[in-house]
């Protein structure tokens, strides 16, 4: 199959759609989503992610095949749905991004700075390796129940920390996540705001990330979503895989637990 050619066609189509989308409302977006059906353009990013996983890389020139995402070295299927979770080897709770950073530094010999340098695309970029890896790893949990670890004391402490972070008001606008996400049926301008303190709200949001952003033409991770909402909150930049990023995602994952993963989702 000619993957390259298909990708060009897709990119052009998506590009055209996104131009009209920029000025459009949610209703029109839903129509596009319907037209795309199962043809989520994230499929190409997922292919890339799989290739990157198996490709030798870094100073040690080894692949990520021995990376343990929680279900044992090399087991990817079902792993994403059980993150964030406690990892005894680091004695910490990690999300997929923190874990990939660990594997890239430990197995492949990259430095933390190299991994954290540019984890997420800027507007106009074609996507980063981290985004592709996360898209593939999440896809390998598609249809499985969200089941983040909550058996270990550190996992429960991480949830409690996440809840406190969610309500932490600071900065010139006094915003917290709760300002925009603790009520049902609210929106900012025309953008619907999920109530992330409830199961239905958290489930719908958590299950759909990572997601292909039509307006940006790239896959975004949940870590990026945390960072970008922090930006809207007038906060400084959230570090990928940081304790706050992991704790916020734990809060959302536990609130949404039981629902089926449906990532990569498709977003505006």
């Amino acid at each position: 199959m000619n993957k390259g050619f298909m990708r060009v066609i897709f990119t052009v189509l998506i590009g055209l759609w996104s131009v009209t989308l920029l000025s459009d409302t949610e209703g029109v977006f839903d129509q596009y989503r319907e037209m795309l059906g199962d043809d989520n353009p994230a499929i190409f990013v997922i292919f890339d992610g799989e290739e990157i996983w198996y490709a030798p890389a870094g100073p040690k020139s080894v692949s990520l095949e021995q990376c343990d995402l929680g279900l044992g070295p090399g087991v990817v299927e079902g792993a994403y749905a059980q993150l964030p979770r406690y990892f005894p080897d680091v004695d910490r709770v990690q999300d997929v991004e923190a874990r990939l950073e660990y594997c890239m530094t430990q197995l492949q010999g990259l430095t933390t700075e190299e991994v954290r340098g540019k984890p997420y695309s800027l507007r106009g970029d074609l996507g980063t390796e981290l985004e592709a890896l996360v898209a593939w790893i999440a896809d390998q949990s598609s249809g499985l129940a969200i089941a983040p670890g909550q058996a270990h004391a550190k996992e429960r402490a991480t949830y409690a920390l996440g809840e406190n972070l969610f309500y932490y008001r600071a900065g010139p606008h006094d915003f917290s996540c709760a300002t925009c996400h603790e009520q049902t049926g609210r929106r900012i301008r025309l953008q619907a705001l999920p109530n992330l303190t409830t199961h239905p709200g958290a489930a719908e949001a958590y299950s759909s990330w990572p997601a292909y952003r039509i307006s940006q033409g790239i896959v975004r991770t949940m870590g990026w979503r945390m960072r970008d909402c922090m930006r809207q909150q007038r906060m400084p930049e959230l570090i990928m895989g940081s304790q706050a990023s992991v704790a916020l995602q734990t809060y959302l994952a536990v609130n949404g637990a039981g629902a089926s993963m449906a990532a990569p989702g498709l977003k505006r």
Binding site: L165, P236, L238, A244
Partner: peptide, 9 residues
């Protein structure tokens, strides 16, 4: 936690 998790931008 926030102090360790964020950087100036």
């Amino acid at each position: 936690v926030l102090l360790e998790s964020m950087t100036d931008k």
